[in-house]
């Protein structure tokens, strides 16, 4: 069975860029799911199983940090690895994301090689 990934970003453009970067980095997924914010992602994870989540932090409605908080309280999804893809490179915000369970971070703008470096350790 192949690997499934969920990309969470309020920007449709960024979701497409992430998908293209994943392909350019050599990753192949059985299925790529998309969500526009944390709440949409939680709703989706109620019916879909994924192996990896790539999430923005700064989003309207439910941001990436709140998504991590709520995910950590749900036994069905709390162990799915999450990598943050964000303009928020500050150690305080990334530190908070990691304390909430994020397994890594990729700073926008990014290259396929940087995606490979971070995801290669998880997949």
């Amino acid at each position: 069975m192949g690997t499934k990934v969920l990309i969470i970003d309020d920007s449709n453009t960024m979701r497409k860029i992430v998908q293209r970067s994943l392909r350019q980095a050599g990753f192949e997924f059985e299925k790529i799911l998309e969500a526009g914010d944390g709440q949409e992602a939680l709703d989706l994870l109620g019916s879909e199983s994924v192996d990896l989540i790539l999430s923005d932090i700064n989003m309207p409605n439910m941001d990436g940090l709140e998504f991590l908080r709520q995910k950590s309280q749900n036994d069905d999804i709390k162990d799915i690895p999450v990598v943050m893809i964000t303009t928020e490179a500050g150690t305080d915000i990334i530190g908070e994301a990691k304390s909430l369970g994020a397994r890594g971070s990729i700073k926008k703008p990014f290259t396929p090689d940087q995606v490979n470096d971070v995801l290669g350790e998880l997949l």
Binding site: T13, M14, M59, T87, E88, G90, P109
Partner: peptide, 29 residues
Amino acid sequence: DAIGELVNMITGGVKDAFGREGLNVKLAV
């Protein structure tokens, strides 16, 4: 959407640069 993402990334880079000078800048959407 693309121009919104462009301004988001430019501002993120500027925020990082200020952060290296000890200034804390927060971003909106």
